[in-house]
Design a protein around this nucleic acid. Structure first.
Lengths: 348, 348
DNA sequence: TTTCAACACGAAAACGTTTTCGAAGCGTTA
DNA sequence: TAACGCTTCGAAAACGTTTTCGTGTTGAAA
């Protein structure tokens, strides 16, 4: 690998000082036009590029935001990143992304490497591994070290920092209410285990919708999926559980999945068993992604405006980065939207 | 924002020199156990974290690989990143990801910021914007500056650097041959415009399969989609074009889409018009992603082992980073795999 | 001729780290 | 007592920048 050109080399070759070269390249009026031209020409010849890392050292700022997400395939996270990117760029910040793959160790590793110099602050959604372990020392350390963090999506109440989350409870309740209002009385719920905060809240919304409408809720209709290490394989056991569920409970007339894949899998299993969607069973999912749009029939979903989440997160982070005084931490709660498609026959 | 603790601060507080602190924290035997313990305790108290950026300055290496991809929602790119990550980590390298969003300007911006200090080398797939513009000055500059680049997926013949690509031609030909062998005689092709290299090659494979089997090919059955700025909206015109195509050519008995969404859209339009899949029309897509698996019926696809692509790319990059002499550039061609699902009735 | 401003440039510090080399202090040995 | 070796630590350079504060030269004004 060739080594990169530096100010020093240019200065030596041209018989001027380093400062002169620096000023000339920056277009300072201090340097004569003649010298400036000469230096610029030579710099171009050597393919000179300023070394930002040295700059960061000097400025003690990198103007870069680090984003750590658990998964990259999720359409939701892609949308959030999209939002983060566009808004951060507007404000003159660069964005770097790293993946935790839902693993605690990887999350710690990524935070460590990024925290030590590369970035000014974090926007992150914690991995399932971390949630399960309930070990947040790496986050505490980072915050104590003076680097601001904005958490999004998955909540950790005991950590005090800025947060931007979605109103999972109301989003979910609204969806289940819509099912109830359009006639469903036996709604199956496909959810995660309770340690995943968003899964828990969406489950609560499901329960609350029943209570609100005075509909008895049968807890046999709730299916909790263990997917700490989510992969295609977890779908196989899920499918058989679902088949069993439908066989035991032919009265089921609605399905609510706390994410896209769960809802979709529920729909597919029902279809295979001869149910018509939305004729016999109506289906709603949480998180509106490509799968919902391309499913057959397309899936009614609770949309989480990921773009806005990203935007809010960046706003909070930059405010903290660029202000000296340390105000109280905020938690921004964003509302969802119910997007109707072919898998339901809602009235309005 | 609080400022971060440094070696200097610790040294001053404890009345020792910076070198002593550095050595103590690194566990050098030079420093007495007593002093070491004292320094470490104090460092922990201050939440000290070494500033890697200063280190990179010294070492002139960051041990970090920069990855730039056009889109994050693509399942294919996610898989490649997955591969890059796991293998890079094994070799002690960190991975940073940036997005170009298929935009030339954003690609240039990202390369510029990353190239100047943050990383040792690039793995990238160029944006459609860049391909259309045919402007590669930013890549040339980076290479000339001495920073190695590995290109993947989308080819640029005129740039000399390491590349890892998929055998689009043979993958596509194989898929179309399979269609022909199972009886199709009028296969519609949904492809991109020719400036997208992979689209072009897949089109060539489609044509070659016909020639090889002596089947006349009707160019009216080829639909070229303009999707430079790909969004959900481009699907609407595509759908009407497809509808028109099927109306004009009721003889169509097969569909080959050069990507997942094209194939899927073709399938959906056909289904809406009353065709049965795979009874009346068989469908094959390129790029095997979540959509293929979850479609109804699920989609037969040409799978591009993204994980392997990532692995190969990392291997090539690290080899170049860690060896002094500059060998000739290589291009690694990976083969695809035809994954059969419900949208076809292949014989074997 | 003296004085002074304008102009063009250079020296050096600073950012945070690692590492090499040297040096002080102290005990041991001949 | 002198020589030596070990232990423990500090000074300083280096990485590539930017920026502040000189300093020397020139030309013109007094």
């Amino acid at each position: 690998m060739k080594k990169k050109a530096t100010l020093k080399e240019i200065a030596n070759e041209l018989g001027v000082s380093i400062s002169t070269v620096s000023k000339a390249l920056k277009g300072s009026t201090e340097i004569s036009e003649e010298t400036t031209d000469k230096i610029r020409a030579f710099a171009k010849l050597l393919h000179y590029r300023p070394n930002n890392i040295a700059l960061s050292l000097k400025n003690r700022r990198t103007k870069t935001i680090g984003v750590i997400i658990p998964e990259i395939v999720h359409h939701f996270f892609s949308e959030v990143i999209q939002g983060i990117e566009t808004y951060a760029n507007e404000r003159g910040y660069n964005v770097l992304i790293a993946l935790s793959n839902e693993s605690f160790d990887k999350e710690v590793f990524n935070i460590d490497t990024l925290a030590s110099g590369s970035i000014d602050g974090f926007i992150l959604s914690v991995s399932k591994g971390t949630l399960k372990r309930q070990d947040f020392h790496h986050l505490y350390e980072t915050i104590n070290q003076g680097m601001p963090i904005v958490l999004f999506d998955r909540q950790i109440p005991e950590i005090s920092c800025d947060k931007v989350i979605v109103d999972d409870f109301r989003g979910s309740r609204r969806a289940v209410e819509a099912l109830i209002e359009s006639g469903c009385r036996h709604i199956a719920l496909i959810t995660t285990e309770d340690y995943v905060d968003v899964g828990f809240k969406r489950t609560q919304g499901y329960l609350d919708a029943h209570k609100k409408h005075g509909i008895p809720q049968n807890s046999d209709l709730i299916l909790k999926v263990n997917d700490q290490f989510f992969s295609e394989d977890t779908l196989i056991p899920l499918q058989s559980s679902l088949k069993e569920l439908f066989l035991l409970h032919p009265e089921i007339d609605g399905i609510f999945g706390v994410n896209e894949v769960y809802a979709l899998t529920g729909m597919k299993v029902a279809q295979r068993m001869g149910y018509s969607i939305p004729g016999d069973i109506q289906v709603v999912g949480f998180t509106d992604g490509v799968l919902s749009k391309h499913a057959h029939p397309s899936l009614t979903s609770v949309k989480q405006h990921g773009h806005n989440i990203g935007r809010e997160a960046v706003q909070m982070l930059i405010r903290r980065l660029e202000s000296e005084e340390e105000g109280p931490f905020e938690t921004k709660v964003l509302q969802t939207e119910l997007v109707q498609r072919e898998s339901t026959r809602f009235i309005n």
